[in-house]
């Protein structure tokens, strides 16, 4: 009983991060029909951003180590709250720039070319990270205090037993962000335009709405979400150049595939399902967990190609 509750909590926490990632990917995919393989790289940037805002770390390798000289401590050493405000703003700007300079020239190209180019971009960002800060992993940067509350250490929770406090914060934070994005997309005019653009972008343009601006905004929001996922993810796992593809891109894609491309609810549901499946098997049969995870997605794709909430298949 104790185990099950703990597993479910871990699954929920993983799933919340997957949902954040999938949400960013799916709104870009749904709105612009643009496949962004660099989504994981945005997660990576967010994680490093968080690291250097929250911590003052000693960089041993890479160009940054050379610039910083001796002592090689780099970073602001500020609070997590600052990172929580700064990261989405910076990532939004990066996202808007990416839309303008990377995505826009590619809207008319084929799906395969979009995949190839964003794949190349992901490669470049990952390698730039490796060049600047080296391949060394930095330990995760979960804070001890947030807004005066103690968030470090373990909490004794009924049913679960001792469980890290920070993980509860992560779950809460992720769902807060997911809820916010959901409201923006479902309840605001901006969201309405974006959703209309998914159906028929030409018609939206004919109504006198500048859809290219909405595209830039959507890309910015998607990037901000990926960055936030990275920021939150970096408090749980070690930060290293490889996490962008391994811990973000692949789960984000799987999330979108399960939830259905372009579906906000789908991304949330998909993320949580994926997180749960992963958590259960990590406990029960760690060696098989990844195999089962991928197998699960494969079966899902074959049986329900449109995903849980998707209406259209991308590329059909």
């Amino acid at each position: 009983m104790v185990d099950i509750a703990g597993i479910l909590l871990t699954g929920l926490q993983q799933g919340a991060i997957f949902a954040l990632l999938g949400l960013g990917l799916t709104i870009i995919l749904g709105t612009m029909e643009f496949l962004n393989l660099a989504h994981g790289a945005l997660y990576l940037v967010g994680a490093y951003m968080g690291l250097f805002i929250v911590r003052e770390v000693s960089v041993q390798e890479g160009l940054l180590a050379g610039i910083a000289g001796d002592p090689t401590a780099v970073g602001l050493g500020s609070s997590f709250l600052v990172a929580l405000i700064l990261t989405p703003i910076l990532m939004f700007v990066i996202g808007v720039a990416m839309e303008r300079f990377v995505a826009r020239p590619l809207y008319d190209r084929t799906e395969v070319e979009q995949l190839l180019l964003t794949f190349g971009l992901a490669l470049i960002i990952e390698e730039l990270a490796r060049e600047f800060v080296g391949s060394q992993p930095f330990s995760s940067y979960a804070p001890d205090k947030l807004l005066g509350f103690t968030v470090g250490g373990q909490a004794d929770v009924p049913l679960v037993g001792l469980y890290p406090r920070w993980r509860f914060v992560v779950i809460g934070l992720a769902f807060l962000l997911i809820g916010l994005s959901y409201l923006i997309i479902e309840r605001t005019d901006f969201g309405l335009i974006v959703k209309a653009g998914t159906r028929d972008s030409e018609m939206v343009r004919m109504l006198g709405i500048d859809i290219t601006r909405s595209y830039a905004l959507v890309f910015g929001v998607g990037a901000a979400l990926a960055g936030l996922a990275g920021l939150v993810g970096g408090t749980i796992i070690d930060v290293a150049p490889g996490i962008g593809t391994n811990n973000a891109l692949v789960p984000a894609f799987l999330t979108v595939v399960i939830g259905g491309a372009g579906s906000v609810v789908g991304a949330i549901a998909g993320g949580i399902i994926l997180g749960m499946v992963a958590a259960v098997f990590q406990f029960q049969a760690p060696q098989w967990s990844q195999i089962v995870l991928f197998g699960f997605v494969a079966v899902f794709l074959l049986v329900r190609p449109g995903g849980l909430f998707g209406s259209v298949e991308v590329g059909e």
């Binding site: 496949l35 799906e111 995949l115 692949v250 894609f253 799987l254 595939v257 491309a261 990844q290 195999i291 991928f294 197998g295 997605v297 494969a298 794709l301 074959l302 190609p305 298949e313 991308v314 590329g315 059909e316």
Partner: peptide
């Protein structure tokens, strides 16, 4: 059975299953 991205993701999942 699937095309486009879904084909790519399916082949990826089979590959990763073997890898793990």
């Amino acid at each position: 059975r699937r095309s486009g991205v879904y084909f790519a993701v399916l082949t990826l999942t089979f590959g990763q299953m073997l890898y793990f």
